[in-house]
Nucleic acid binder design. Structure first.
Lengths: 176, 176
DNA sequence: GCACCCTATGCAACTAGTTGCAGAGGTGGC
DNA sequence: GCCACCTCTGCAACTAGTTGCATAGGGTGC
């Protein structure tokens, strides 16, 4: 389970409240993890119980109070310890892949329409990521350390989208 | 949840018992799903309760009886219905990606060693998949229908491994 | 003043999957 | 005969994540 560690990374960069973190999952953290706000609040509460983060209630003017979480020394150490562990290769699970394999047992035309929507979605995301890369990292070879890591994770997002586009395109063309 | 559907696909091709299916997850079905034998038995039992499959107990000579599952008409229809549903784009969750992003907060050297092991693993799998493709599908352009689908899912496995190799290699070289 | 919307947090029921463990039939080696 | 190993099925406790729903503070428009 890496949600708690993904949250530790995000909070190490900038303390934040729950909903703000959920929003960051729609952007930077979202390249490599995703979570609902319910799940985020649940995990944040547990991290607080474990002493990994502290919460400070901040009053706001036009909205309810928010709880801003900050990583503790214990949390920083927990993150470092986790980074030192070995992560095995993850299995690949994909519902659309099951369907691509199963197409002969159902409505292939409906599946192909679904695939066309998906590949469009992936193309849109790829264009968005590539725009981000060009705008935020005009000179990637000059990057180092944490900033380089952030860029390289964006590169992972780009390559991942490229994979999906290549595969779905190959599938659709092979059946044309 | 697509395990039950992945199992329907596998059983539609060939009736099988639980452990045999678990073994097939280490091979063909394993390109797009994975499951432990405990999970497979659990799901098979539910599919049987739902009328999707029937089980026939077969005695064996040097091993305990096995339950061979066969898809029913109800199961065949359930699979077709499912194929006609729309599958949304799946999120990308990766523990190693979180670590790549978090490397500055821990032991980067240990992570790089982990990444080298992983990329070797991916290269081995890629070579294995490419060997399968060359051996089992010498003339892919002549394939049609279900056989073509099987080949294209293998292609997905190849492209997926290619993605991982490209990304990890880029990460390691950028930090060299 | 009410409906709608936004921010902000969070409970609870449920699901899919993991892990540890277990019983049973049988074979081969010591 | 016992033990290690293989085949074969499966229970149960647990975890991570999903979904539906809820409360609460505040602002805006009709």
């Amino acid at each position: 389970m890496a949600l708690e560690h993904a949250l530790l990374v995000a909070l190490s960069e900038r303390p934040a409240a729950g909903l703000e973190l959920a929003r960051r999952f729609d952007r930077s953290i979202g390249f490599f993890w995703s979570a609902t706000h319910q799940q985020i609040y649940k995990v944040l509460r547990r991290m607080e119980d474990d002493g990994w983060v502290t919460a400070e209630v901040q009053a706001q003017t036009a909205a309810p109070d928010k709880r801003v979480y900050t990583v503790t020394d214990v949390g920083t150490k927990a993150l470092a310890d986790w980074i030192a562990t070995t992560t095995p290769r993850a299995g690949f699970r994909s519902e659309i892949a099951v369907k691509m394999r199963a197409a002969s047992y159902g409505d292939r035309t409906a599946l192909e329409a679904n695939l066309r929507e998906l590949v469009d979605d992936h193309r849109t995301r790829l264009a968005h990521y590539e725009g981000m890369a060009a705008r935020d990292y005009p000179e990637p070879t000059r990057l180092e350390g944490q900033e380089l890591d952030t860029y390289l994770v964006l590169r992972g997002g780009i390559l991942q989208e490229t994979f999906w586009i290549a595969w779905i395109t190959e599938y659709l063309e092979a059946h044309a």
